[in-house]
Computed example of a mutant assay.
Amino acid sequence: MHGELFPRERTEIAPGAVHVPDWLGPDRQRELLADCREWARPPAGLRTVHTPGGGTMTARQVCLGLHWYPYGYARTAVDGDGAPVKPMPARLAALGRAAVAAAYGEADPLGHGDGEQPAGRCGPYPSYGWQGDEVYDIALINFYDGDSRMGMHRDAEERSGAPVVSLSLGDSCLFRFGNTASRGRPYRDVELRSGDLFVFGGPSRLAHHGVPKVLPGTGPQDLGLSGRLNITLRVGGLDP
């Protein structure tokens, strides 16, 4: 509980970028956390990412479906233990589609969100070209401890323009959502809490974004997670 007088509301941060607070209820958060712990086990488990320039990402990562590395995709953990990447679970792909439907103002036919869902398409959120038939086939799961950060970057290695889905578990963070032209201003800072959904597509699909700060100790105590997990779902559109 954060003590707001009024519930947080769904907000369009930029055209095509929508924040849906508290989309995942406590039970679903616990289910996803248990899944993430399994996915993080070797082979092709949680690893530290090194950039071509010699830097090291402070958030550790595990991938499903395809393995992301700076700056491309592979079917094996080429910058880890070299093992084949774990498959993308069908339930996670379905969760991605349901998340976009919820963010863009459609009914959630799969009932994945635990909050109240709108009945049918409702304004003011247009679809931004989302057809609902794209298959989410890639998941990047980042683990942040209290000192982790993520610099401003774009998710640009995919060939599909389908929206990116971001789900938060554990500690809150400061999420910085910027523009498509540069890593600098204008940008907007949003606090993402455990259970929050953030979707960005359409004109914001290639916007720069990052995590300048994690807020330690702010996650739900009954979740049993120290730190923050971010589950990012994407449609690759890549050759099989």
Rank of each mutant, 00 (worst) to 15 (best):
M152Q: 15
R176S: 13
S168I: 03
S148G: 13
R159Y: 09
F175P: 09
G151C: 09
S168K: 05
L169K: 06
A181Y: 09
L167H: 08
R154N: 01
S166T: 11
L174I: 09
N179A: 10
V165Q: 11
S166D: 03
L174P: 00
G151L: 07
A181F: 13
A181T: 15
M150R: 07
G161R: 15
H153V: 02
E157I: 00
L174E: 12
E157T: 08
L167I: 05
C173L: 08
G178W: 09
S166I: 02
M152Y: 02
D147M: 00
G184S: 14
R183P: 08
R183E: 14
P163V: 04
R149N: 08
D147H: 11
F175Q: 10
R185W: 02
E158Y: 13
E158I: 12
R183W: 01
S168A: 14
S172F: 00
M152C: 01
A156S: 15
V164K: 08
A162M: 06
P163E: 04
G151P: 09
S182N: 14
A156L: 12
M150D: 10
G161F: 13
V165D: 12
E157L: 02
G161M: 14
V164W: 08
G161D: 15
M152T: 02
V165Y: 09
D171A: 09
H153R: 01
E157W: 01
M152I: 02
G178P: 12
V164H: 10
S148T: 12
F177N: 11
R159I: 00
H153G: 04
R154F: 00
D171H: 00
D171T: 01
D155I: 06
A162E: 07
G170P: 02
A181K: 15
P163K: 04
P163D: 03
V164L: 15
P163F: 06
S148Y: 05
F177T: 07
R159F: 04
G170N: 01
L167C: 03
G151V: 07
S160T: 11
R176P: 06
E158R: 10
S182C: 12
L167Q: 00
L169F: 05
R149D: 05
V165T: 06
G151R: 03
E157V: 06
S172N: 00
S172E: 04
D147R: 14
L167V: 03
V164F: 05
G178F: 09
V164E: 12
G161K: 13
G161H: 15
E157Q: 12
D155L: 11
G184E: 14
V165M: 10
M150T: 05
H153Y: 05
G170F: 01
A162G: 01
F175S: 11
D171E: 03
G151K: 07
N179T: 13
R159P: 00
R149G: 03
N179K: 06
P163A: 03
A156C: 13
E158P: 11
H153K: 08
S182Q: 11
M150E: 08
S168R: 04
V165W: 07
G184F: 01
M152K: 03
S166F: 02
A156I: 08
S160F: 09
M150V: 10
R154T: 11
V164A: 12
G184H: 11
P163I: 02
A162F: 07
F175E: 07
G170W: 02
F175D: 06
V164G: 07
F177M: 15
L167R: 07
R183V: 04
D155P: 12
